[in-house]
Amino acid sequence: MASKSLRQEFFKGVWDENPIFRQLLGMCPTLAVTNAVINGLAMGLATAFVLIFSSIVVAAIKKLIPSQVRIASYIVVIATFVTMADRFLAAFFPPISKSLGPYVPLIVVNCIILGRQEAFSSKNSVGRAFIDALGMSTGFIIALLILSSIREILGSGTWLGHQVLGSWFEPWIIMILPPGAFLTLGILLGLIMVIDRKLQRSV
């Protein structure tokens, strides 16, 4: 692992090991909050904040933690940052906090975050853990933005609240309901596979 350059460490989170499209982790927020771009973006940023800070802290204190209690310690660290993000949103962006509802506190159990601590931060230096978290967060935000853009445009005819499709367009309400999330995610996963296969063949 140490042979990887920092650049590779960053980009693996965006494509090769994209948390949503490749690792299929963190599906709960992915499916639940991507009915509008603003919600997807807020969830992405909140998760990025939690992931980056948790990774730094875990990488910094990894030697002090006995392995028997590591998961408990990681969860406390993660929960601390999640609660901070939750309070921050409630104080400064009340409408977003309201529309995300219980999904902000639920970042605590988002597998991407605990997964990165266990798989990466607990074995690597602070710097590498930071780059890894940054890459994973970027991959997560990009995936949420793609999903929520498709769902908002087809489901409400808007993008980030702005009307993009004319009045002739009858919104597909199913796209902003739970089935729309599964349909969109499934089709995207298939597409990513096809693209990846093409890329590998050309290499």
Binding site: I65, P66, V69, A72, S73, V76, V77, T80, T83, M84
Partner: peptide, 14 residues
């Protein structure tokens, strides 16, 4: 010791 200090620090921060 580790769990207590992690808990106390997180509590103080929160």
């Amino acid at each position: 010791v580790v769990l207590t200090s992690v808990g106390v620090l997180s509590g103080a921060l929160l």
